[in-house]
Design a protein around this nucleic acid. Sequence first.
RNA 1: GUGGGCGUAGCUCAGCUGGUGAGAGCACCGGGUUGUGGCCCCGGAGGUCGCGGGUUCAAAUCCCGUCGCUCACCCCA
Length: 418
Amino acid sequence: MIRAIRGMRDLLPPETERWQQVELAARELFRRYGYQELRLPLLERTELFARSIGAETDIVAKEMYTFTDRHGDSVTLRPEATAQVVRAFLEHGLAKAPGVKKYFLIGPMFRYERPQKGRYRQFHQINCEALGSDAPELDAEVILLLLDILREVGLGQVKLLLNSLGCPGCQVDFKAELKLFLFDREGWCPDCERRRAVNALRVFDCKSAHCQGLLQGAPALVDFLCPDCARHYARIKELLGRFQVDFEEQPRLVRGLDYYTRTTFEVTAAGLGAQDAVAGGGRYNGLIRELGGPDLPGIGFAIGQERLMEVLPPTAAGARRELLFLAYVGEAARDRALALLYELRQQGLAALMDFDHRSLKSQMSLADRLQAAAAVILGESELEEGVAQVKWLADSRQERLPLAELAGSLAARLRAPA
RNA sequence: GUGGGCGUAGCUCAGCUGGUGAGAGCACCGGGUUGUGGCCCCGGAGGUCGCGGGUUCAAAUCCCGUCGCUCACCCCA
């Protein structure tokens, strides 16, 4: 048997319906905040990601689905969205659009990693990108939007982690100081041994208690923020406070993409195992220029859809669908049911019937197991009288309704269940 | 890339100190007479015991390899 590729999951009912609900809710919130949808290719030139995410990052160094196409070009399945949003933004001259450019994008991303709980090779993100303003009010708004979406889909308990990485100016001084500190001490774990040379900031992320101990007294990024960055960060915290948003300052929140500047944030939830980040994001003020565009700032976030679905409370079981099942007895009734089936569908109702000549009992059983709201029963006597028996499966009430106006009355009842 | 756990019907699993024809629950199909679901009863279908090799008179049960799943590390959504 041919199976799905490692790390790629099939999404089946009823999960697909829950995904649709979540996406619908997200779209509604994006609309309120003034965002418009972008649908971009899954494949991009490899160079785009190498230049934006950073050639030394894990994503680029060892996690990309990269191959050469028949023409000999190196192409890559997108591992994240921001880089290509900026690419499309520049390619289509969207910088000329009025005001802050606000886009959202929902779709699959690909990273060649060893799968585990909450981590797949093809995973899905709900992305938000706002380009063209460095105002801290925008940072706060973006975070508010993220929390709004999460609340709207029913995710209750989350934790917002917040940090500021400062601008390149702040980072130069800080990194120098940090490296001095790191190389001044010995006994780091092999990973940190490597990190202190390649990406010193990441040492802060180490999970080893030993390394965390060694970090005691290490310089803190917050102390190195320049006046502008410090003011920017303070203003965001002030605004979040005003909007009653609980957050936790996490001076060690770094993030594995090189383009982040100033604000970074992450939302975590319990129940996800080791990969507990449901969403993450931050500001990327140098990225657009880095990719050959104007010196415009930007900020965004990504929600990990699989992780989000994982922590959402389960939907109430036993809920019946807005579905009708037509049951018939006899050939004449069968033909009438066939016609009625089409009429109901024309009226916008979801309707099914059995084509396989099952017994009435069997048809009723099917209706029940399909979670239909009601079974519409047609037999000889009903045909003679021009009516249908409608049995509501939840409470077994049964009524006779005129066939002529069946669609209308059923539609009304389904929309306002008694 | 590294390490641990696990691979028996569609699903969840039992069976594994090697030895009567490979099981249960759920799900699926049919039946319990004359036109009506959910409960109950009866019957049925469904499995190369992941795959390959080895030990043995005999392996789902032991050993090796391999593939896969899973959790964790690295890193991230």
